[in-house]
Design a protein around this nucleic acid. Structure first.
Lengths: 272, 272
DNA sequence: CGCCGGGTTGATTTCAGTCAAGCAACGTGG
DNA sequence: CCACGTTGCTTGACTGAAATCAACCCGGCG
């Protein structure tokens, strides 16, 4: 995840101002260095639809910490990330912000299955500098009807996001902060490597928010992991034993193969 | 929610056996008392597709506590609930079950946007007696391509489910057990009624699982609510003041209109 | 310099999980 | 009809996890 694209967007990029204003609006077809095809959502769609979409797409660049849309804005655009990290969050009436997800290169901001006149339902803010593609939702909806391949891609995308949310609920309900952190870190470790190092893409406060704990708790969780060979220096992480780290994910879980599970955990037969 | 349908399914229903076996397989067209049209997912689709779907649909009836599918079963069918309550859950390798959602009359079990050969990803079990409609996923996928109205309905359904999951994550991350219970109860209160009574559709253990707490914690949460006029007798609930209950949802949240929020809660500008 | 912002650490409190007991309602089988 | 076990639910005492409050460190940077 989070593999940065190496498209030279030099012709589009200009130094972003502080505001949350788009830096440049440009028909994609004019910026040869980037193609919608590079976005996973459009990787498998038909050529015809792709070029039509390209005509409607606009590139916008946002400066750090700016709001892309608010949860009660009408959803007027389908938005994808060319580069950058975006916070998806819910803001309570009292101002409390709850992080829902962090999206990055190549991902859609929200599911593009928006039925045209809905609200976004969530808020989106940039973390660092970000470049986005926007496509008017009404246009997008038409292509969705006409192109089976686009349609399929959108459904796949929705299903994927749904799965991610389900895993997150599972983690929140069943794991401790330490386990969630272990899981989080494992995701950054390349497969089949026992020892690995990497750099966290955003700061600890955000990681804490993603794991659903306070910053201090996260800090202590990291401290515990030090004992099992996880060295940290601000954002640089060195995992000395991935398998040891993975073991930490299910600490306290007697695998109990087919042992006589006393009785079914969740009760049965209770409908009205 | 949970409004029971009053379709007489007498011609289909037989006394279910203990196993998790379907009681009757029947072409829907033969059971005049029920129409796919009654299911919200199909409420707005074109007549042509509806009748085609009807040809493919089978009705199955399950006894309490039986497994409908497991999370690593290949998703062979799109399944909707005619009546009953169904647990959607994830089962960890060690046997721990985490409740993801509870679905009921008229709802789809999983999002029908399955790209044919996937796994279900979650497990589903009946709570009480349940009657389901199953449509082979390959057939369904074809109708999905051919019918714009069905396609739209499926996307709406997916988006709705996604929204629900997001709210749940928000609740798990930002609310205490008591607040979550208060929210949960409010959902059962008819609008514009200050005093109301209702019956919980399933037992306390399940409610606890849904709220992400242990049964004992839930019991204590109910005990606290007694003090503000929420009377409970097993599954029968009497809320003496809905507004008082709603207030309990955001206890401890200084509404702080436009007060000088010290600094933005989640940090900004931290991308790689 | 001094003053951030990001991060850590410690002391304390609060919340929820755990372990254990108990009770009322129900069903079953002698 | 009653002893008995079961199930759903509650309560109490205790433990443990995470939030809270607070201090502090350290590396920019105006």
């Amino acid at each position: 995840m989070a593999t940065h694209m190496h498209n030279s967007l030099a012709s589009v990029t200009t130094t972003p101002k502080k505001g949350r204003v788009a830096r440049r609006n440009d028909r994609l077809k004019n910026t040869e260095s980037f193609s919608l095809r590079d976005l996973p959502l459009f990787a498998t769609i038909d050529e015809e639809t792709l070029s039509q979409l390209t005509l409607e797409a606009k590139i916008e660049s946002y400066s750090p910490g700016s709001t892309i849309f608010r949860q009660d804005d009408p959803a007027t655009a389908v938005i994808l990330i060319i580069s950058g990290y975006i916070k998806i969050l819910r803001i309570a009436p009292n101002g409390d912000e709850t992080l829902i997800a962090i999206r990055t290169d190549g991902e859609t901001l929200i599911e593009p299955c928006t039925g045209s006149t809905d609200l976004y339902g969530v808020s989106a803010e940039t973390i660092g500098h970000s470049t986005l593609v926007k496509i008017p939702v009404t246009r997008f909806a038409r292509f969705l009807r006409d192109s089976a391949s686009l349609n399929l891609a959108v459904m796949k995308d929705a299903k994927e996001k749904m799965t991610t949310l389900i895993y997150e609920i599972e983690a929140l309900k069943s794991q401790t902060a330490d386990q969630r952190l272990a899981h989080f870190l494992v995701k950054f470790c390349p497969h089949n490597e026992e020892r690995c190092r990497f750099r966290l893409p955003y700061d600890k406060r955000l990681i804490a928010a993603q794991l659903g704990v306070k910053q201090e708790t996260l800090s202590r969780a990291f401290a515990k992991l030090r004992d099992i060979g996880v060295r940290t220096e601000t954002r640089d992480i060195l995992v000395e034993s991935v398998s040891r780290l993975k073991a930490e994910c299910d600490v306290n879980s007697a695998p109990q193969g087919l042992l006589p599970r006393p009785n079914t955990p969740l009760s049965r037969d209770n409908a009205a």
